[in-house]
């Protein structure tokens, strides 16, 4: 399709959307089977994940190619900015739902359970708790060990990423690479420490409401950090290939926005899941 830079870029027909649909179908179907102990579910799920990885690789490759070829004008760039911004807003709402649930449990639900004296007369609402039916004492995760170190790591990673961004603005290649590599390293260390924390934890996902919220919140956050780290690695790879310039690097900025968002979510986690 012929392009001229004054017009908004309209992509040619593409099969990636259909492949996305197949990937999600396999993943959802496989996951449903796997959860219901149908043995072949694992294979279907794996196939779905492979198709999904192929999809991300292929689709982004195409978009990057179009971007480098100069098909995207200023208006397309603005669309990407709006799009990424609203995507992050949707992520904010995803975590907001979980934090709302945590607030409701801690403020209302536990109090009401402790006031209903018929079923569990001895239950006193405290936090953390694994609920009125728990038989063992709960050994919760304190904030001032690994979690505090992890907080520091993520905060520093925000700074190193900004250092890389400054490098990009100055087109100082060495600074970009150092900044990005440090950020990726910090993200990886964070994930390692998080995994270590899980391994050492004295409670599991089925240790009542505390275990539920702890693992679901930190798990989803960790997933986002993992995604962010992979995205940063791809950006570093693209930097090495010379894809970005001081004026044209929205791919970098989008990942940076995402990284800062993940950072901020962690601060809320630190305060409301680990600390208070």
């Amino acid at each position: 399709m012929s392009q001229n830079t004054n017009n908004y870029y309209l992509p040619a027909p593409s099969l990636w959307p259909l492949i996305a649909s197949i990937a999600l179908f396999l993943m959802a179907g496989g996951f449903a089977m796997q959860m219901n102990d149908i043995a072949s579910g694992n294979y279907v799920l794996l196939a779905g994940i492979l198709v999904f990885v192929y999809l991300l690789y292929g689709w982004f490759k195409e978009v990057i190619k179009e971007s480098i070829s100069g098909f995207y004008n200023k208006q397309v760039d603005t669309s990407f900015r709006w799009g990424m911004g609203w995507f992050i807003f949707s992520e904010v709402m995803f975590f907001a739902g979980f934090f709302g649930a945590l607030f409701y449990i801690r403020t209302f639900a536990l109090d009401w359970i402790s006031k209903s004296t018929l079923v569990w007369p001895n239950f006193v609402a405290t936090w953390p708790t694994s609920g009125p039916a728990a038989t063992e004492a709960l050994e919760a995760m304190g904030p001032w060990g690994l979690p505090a170190i992890n907080t520091l790591i993520l905060l520093v990673s925000g700074a190193t990423l900004t250092y890389a961004h400054w490098g990009l603005m100055k087109e100082n290649r060495k600074q970009i690479i150092i900044g990005l590599a440090l950020t990726i390293a910090l993200g990886s260390i964070f994930l390692y420490l998080q995994a270590h924390e899980y391994a050492e934890a004295a409670f599991t996902m089925d240790s009542g409401i505390y275990g539920s919220t702890f693992y679901l919140f930190t798990g989803f956050h960790g997933l986002h950090v993992a995604m962010g780290t992979i995205m940063l690695a791809i950006i570093l790879f693209r930097i090495l290939k010379g894809h970005f310039s001081a004026h044209n690097h929205f791919g970098f900025e989008a990942v940076a926005w995402y990284w800062h968002f993940v950072d901020v979510v962690w601060l809320f986690l630190f305060v409301f899941v680990y600390w208070l």
């Binding site: 959860m35 409701y104 694994s130 009125p132 009542g208 409401i209 539920s212």
Partner: peptide, 14 residues
């Protein structure tokens, strides 16, 4: 499927 207790009062949920 994974043993959480968000909606189970016995585990402190609701």
């Amino acid at each position: 499927h994974f043993g959480t207790a968000f909606f189970d009062a016995a585990g402190g949920g609701d």
